[in-house]
Amino acid sequence: MKLNKSCHIYTLFQKNMKVRSAFIFMMILVVQVAQAQQVFSPDYMRSIGKIYVVAGVTLIILLTLLIYMITLDRKISKLEKRQKHE
């Protein structure tokens, strides 16, 4: 089974400088916005019936599972690479 390497999120991320810088830029933006709105102040978290708590919980779960999936993906890529060498 051949995989187009550029399809891999990981390789894409590692190879492509543009993607990486865009990602970093996005992160900075998110942090800026978060700071501007004071995400972590309890007043903000508790506005609109504390809906942001639900958002936080959902985000934590999704992000963690996503990161876990990425590490798994990385492990599989490593295995594939090793298999190719053999």
Binding site: M45, K50, V53, V57, T64, Y68
Partner: peptide, 18 residues
């Protein structure tokens, strides 16, 4: 363990706000 940690962290966030 991953799900347990998630339960703990999300629980902490919820607990802080209730």
């Amino acid at each position: 363990l991953v799900f347990g940690m998630l339960g703990l962290v999300t629980g902490m966030l919820w607990a802080k706000n209730t």
